[in-house]
Amino acid sequence: MTIPANWSKTNRTTKLIRDSFAKIEPRAAELAQFFYGVLFTVSPATRALFPANMNTQRDRLLRALVHVVGLVDQPDELVPFLHQLGRDHRKFDVVAHHYDAVGVALLAALKKYLKDDWTAEVERAWTDAYGIIAKAMREAADAEKGPAWWPARVIDHRKPNSSVAVIRVVPKHPVPFRAGQYLSVQVPQRPRMWRYFSPATAPRTDGVLEFHVRAVDGGWVSRSMVHHTRIGDEWRIGPALGTLAVRQADKRKLLLIAGGTGLAPLRAIADDLARWKQNPAVHLFFGGRTPEDLYDLPTLKMLAATNPWLTVVPVVEEGEVKGGEQGTLVEAVLRRGPWPKTDVLVSGSPTMIRATMMRLMEEGTPAERIKYDQFTVD
């Protein structure tokens, strides 16, 4: 699918969408709750597609809306994102008529919260925009010939510290993905509660996937995965998403900044780079609050020992770590800089990503050189 030719940075539709969304963004959580209320009223069958607890699902809707609005004038990035989203939604058993119900609910929610700002022109802008979004997602879903999800069996579960688990699963059939991407996961202890996790290794010939999971306070799924996963559990793995990646053709130096279990996609990229004959210099900064939080440091040190192009820098905010730095990740990065002509990949909590990006840009790193995934953390 291609975005219509008149869908450009100067397009009036783009401005109307962004301006109207800015007005309701402070009440976005209420809008999301109202949206699902309308959706389940106009299409009661859709309620069975979602978990009983809708908090995370509402957060996902908001993040998706923010991301789409941010890319509305960047079709080269928006369309691939929508295609990924359409393929991913197949795991929910979403079919064509569900998109119509979603459109009705979205427009109703926007109208309610925009009130007098919901003009005929704004309505046309959002109607046109949603038509493009739904068409892109439907086309990608219809064109996909692979399974909506893959069954996988847990073969290993270990806890390097009290709040993190390293879990390895073997799918019945190999799951296609690129190093740095993330996959959606459903575990038997929490049916219909899909969560996103990045494999921590590049694709392997045996198909084994390794996930790093931190038990989040109040997190139904993450705490279950860390504390209650058992060998032999059957998981479901959804299609790959995300844009974090390194191309072999790229010759620029690479800076990888990982906070906590945000290490997983960046370790997968380093693992993938280790298969190439030649690489530019790569610096991987791995941070946590205490030395205990650097749960995967031994693996990283072994990887660096056999790949001279890779430098691993551990960082802790409290305490000390041999050969490492103390302070926040971005402080450690800047102390060892500057980083001219370097591509930067960041992975961690949303707060860590925002703080890191802001400091790097303040210190002169161009925004276009900094890459991260919107849905790294769920």
Rank of each mutant, 00 (worst) to 15 (best):
T46N: 09
V68S: 13
V95R: 09
H97S: 14
R204S: 14
V79Q: 11
L107F: 02
K253P: 01
W309D: 03
L71P: 01
P314I: 03
K341L: 13
V166M: 08
P203S: 14
G103D: 07
P338E: 12
P160K: 05
P171Q: 10
A32K: 06
M1Q: 13
P4A: 15
P75L: 11
A141E: 03
F50T: 10
L266E: 12
L209G: 09
L297G: 14
D296P: 00
K172A: 14
A245I: 00
R190T: 11
T351W: 01
T351S: 12
L300K: 02
K371S: 13
E320W: 00
K112Y: 02
F92Y: 15
L85A: 13
E123S: 12
P265Y: 08
A45K: 05
T311W: 00
L49T: 07
R58S: 11
K253I: 01
R192V: 01
Q374G: 08
N307R: 08
A304D: 08
T56R: 06
A96K: 08
T328A: 09
V72G: 03
Y196V: 10
T356F: 04
A258L: 06
G103W: 00
V122W: 04
W194Y: 07
P199W: 06
W149L: 09
E362I: 02
L310F: 01
V315D: 04
V170A: 12
F40G: 08
T46W: 02
L334D: 13
D272V: 00
T2H: 11
A32D: 07
G242E: 08
R192G: 08
K15N: 11
P366I: 10
I269M: 12
A305K: 05
L31I: 07
S20R: 05
G287P: 03
V102F: 11
T306D: 13
R195H: 10
T328M: 05
R47V: 02
G146I: 01
P314S: 09
R18C: 14
Y295V: 07
A109V: 01
G348Q: 07
T328F: 08
M357W: 00
V312G: 01
K251N: 11
V154F: 03
E210H: 02
P151R: 02
D117E: 15
A355R: 03
V169Y: 03
I3T: 13
N53W: 00
V185N: 09
I24M: 08
W7Y: 13
G37M: 07
R336L: 14
R168D: 15
E144Q: 09
R87K: 07
P26Q: 12
T201V: 05
R195Y: 05
G260D: 07
I231K: 07
S198V: 04
V72N: 06
Y99H: 05
W149Y: 10
E325F: 03
A96M: 05
E362H: 10
P80V: 11
L254T: 08
A125S: 11
T13F: 04
F35M: 12
K145F: 03
R124V: 09
V104R: 06
V170E: 15
M137L: 06
